[in-house]
Design a protein around this nucleic acid. Structure first.
Lengths: 195, 195
DNA sequence: GTCTATATTGCGATAGAC
DNA sequence: GTCTATCGCAATATAGAC
């Protein structure tokens, strides 16, 4: 079906371009040329540039629904933390532009931050904090810890992907290293760095 | 001196507006109106909008020079890590818009990323990795750790400030909590979370 | 140094043909 | 559904008066 090809073509191209240069950094002329369709297709299919952007954003953040399965997991808190790390890394690999939208919306929010991005971030942070809280309560984790440590783990993983542009010459970001990365995060988070 | 007032006025206004909406998100009309000067002042003093932006960026990242004092510190690796955390938090408090420029340039880089932002980030990461490496070498830190753990610490601290917009209703970001925050990061990084 | 007025270019959106 | 051509507006930069 021709219609669907053109539509998907536009969505794919827009995802890449918006991720790389932001909503304001991409014009509909360049967008339609890159997608090899005419400029009027953007208004026709998506009601304008902003409509296309919000659709791309929705697609990118839809996967945050899956975090609920981690909350409902019948598992020890530390296993839930590992499940989060695995889910998070898988998510970044599956949606290579996700971190760009995530941080771009956090620093230069568009009107869609409040409805799409903010709830997704809050949901993940709340679940991680809950998990750490539970770990403290049932004495798997040390007493007197702050449940904010959960957010520390989110920060470590996200920064690994966020900083790629500056660190790829220093640290390998190959997917083949992902398992090693998970072990390292769990090791550091669990036991700390000291002898 | 009138000249300097107008110039500084423009720089201050531009810092706030560029931080909040990005280079492309702010026009020189709005900028000059907010700074209460005429539009032509931007070209006159800074050679155009981009010139003003690059000056703001230089100002924001100039403080990264100070990281050298941590490298040269005569102190144990763990103390250097704490010195980094203190320096980083102080930096975020002194330059409240720094994290916005930092992440905005990482996700939607402008032509100034390569000369201003990239070297600053690389310098900090290298020093943290060196410090962890040294800690492992002199057996203050556990053997078999990756020196990439240093970057994990950068990620935790930066994410705390990056995520403010989404987490301020969940976690307090008050400067009065900073000392507690430093203790928590050192505690987690040093001993981990397990009993 | 600072202003107003204007030149020029580029933007997003759409009318109308097919 | 898709195209081309064009409208109206906002962008940056600058000429020229003071």
């Amino acid at each position: 079906m021709v219609k669907k090809d053109y539509r998907n073509n536009l969505i794919d191209t827009a995802t890449r371009l918006f991720a790389e240069r932001g909503l304001k950094g991409v014009g509909i002329r360049e967008l339609s040329k890159a997608a090899e369709v005419s400029i009027s297709m953007i208004s026709y299919h998506f009601g304008g540039k902003e409509g296309l952007y919000s659709l791309v954003l929705q697609e990118q953040f839809a996967c945050f629904e899956q975090i609920e399965t981690i909350r409902e997991l019948e598992a020890a808190p530390l296993e839930k933390i590992e499940a989060y790390i695995r889910w998070s890394i898988r998510r970044h690999r599956e949606y290579p532009y996700l971190m760009r939208f995530y941080t771009s919306e956090l620093t230069n929010p568009t009107p869609y931050f409040a409805t799409i991005v903010d709830p997704a971030i809050k949901k993940v942070i709340r679940i991680l904090m809950e998990t750490v809280e539970e770990g403290i309560r049932i004495r798997h984790f040390r007493q007197g810890l702050s449940c904010g440590y959960g957010a520390g783990m989110i920060g470590m993983v996200n920064y690994y992907f966020l900083s790629t542009l500056a660190t790829r010459e220093i640290v390998s970001h190959s997917p083949e290293r992902d398992e090693e990365l998970i072990r390292h995060y769990m090791d550091l988070f669990g036991k700390g760095i000291l002898t």
